[in-house]
Design a binder for these strands. Sequence first.
DNA 1: AGGGTTTAAGAGTATTTTGTCTTAATTTAA
DNA 2: TTAAATTAAGACAAAATACTCTTAAACCCT
Lengths: 150, 150
Amino acid sequence: MLLSKACVYGLRSSLFLASCKGDGYTSIREMSDQLDISFHFLTKILQELTGAGLMESHKGPKGGVRLTKAGSEVSLYEIVAAIDGTELFTECALGLPGCGVKKPCPLHDKWAGTRDGIRQMLEDTNLLELAEKGKKQNLRITEDGGFEWI
Amino acid sequence: MLLSKACVYGLRSSLFLASCKGDGYTSIREMSDQLDISFHFLTKILQELTGAGLMESHKGPKGGVRLTKAGSEVSLYEIVAAIDGTELFTECALGLPGCGVKKPCPLHDKWAGTRDGIRQMLEDTNLLELAEKGKKQNLRITEDGGFEWI
DNA sequence: AGGGTTTAAGAGTATTTTGTCTTAATTTAA
DNA sequence: TTAAATTAAGACAAAATACTCTTAAACCCT
Ligand code: SF4
Ligand code: SF4
């Protein structure tokens, strides 16, 4: 699995928030309902994202979470790094420890290439771009597609 | 993690076998020693690969495992598919079930692109090519690099 | 034949990931 | 001020992954 489930849920939620424009908070309960993710599990994931500074939260009625930065300034890479860490982008194809110092293995060139491909895709994709594309082409963000872009 | 540990170990072992030319069997114990992988764990992984037809095994003294096909005919994709399955190459960036039938999500184009990039890299890389490159450039396949290409 | 060597198979354990539940703290609004 | 709503935090449980160990089966050699 390329990304952990927690990470995938984090991406869904972030995309959801980026499309729910308006400066208000969105409650985690509403997100977990609409996105069909376990409420408590999602709460933990979003706590990681708020801890990383990508979101801010507010308690009580009218509370919830929201993105701290504009959607155009949040890349998917930041979200993945906050939840899964950056090991994915440095890990070894053969699982050998301490590489880079010594001579590489024969797989490294190709491996590093695809690894960088993943990172670049995540780095140069931001939330606003996806939200706008979804709105324009009426794409889906939930299983049943029952989500209105605004 | 892109590939499971079992899969990474499977790749290491396969590359090892591809470089240990000669038609004889190589014992799993020797491989686990040289590659620094738990013997019993490696045994199970190689059983999966023999079950998939990529290797054949032989019991008793002089026994062990060997590749069934020539190294040039075994792609990394086959090894990964045999151990981790092909879900990696079809999985969804947002974890949404039943996609493809309905309209896609805004991330799909980019996501499918990098997913295919991973698959293509694995598909058009074969064991012989890696073994020859390793031999020619004296690259490493173990942690300490103490492995003689033949 | 028989004993040593090696893979096969499966039970068992440890760790990580995923998910659930309960309680506490904060905030809004009546 | 009080009650309801909401996130925070942490204990707990279930499932998947990553190993470990034991026993059996096949094989080679003497
Ligand atoms: S050179 Fe090979 S062994 Fe070293 S980090 Fe790259 S893929 Fe891993
Ligand atoms: S279109 Fe989006 S939701 Fe559907 S499979 Fe592709 S990445 Fe997943």
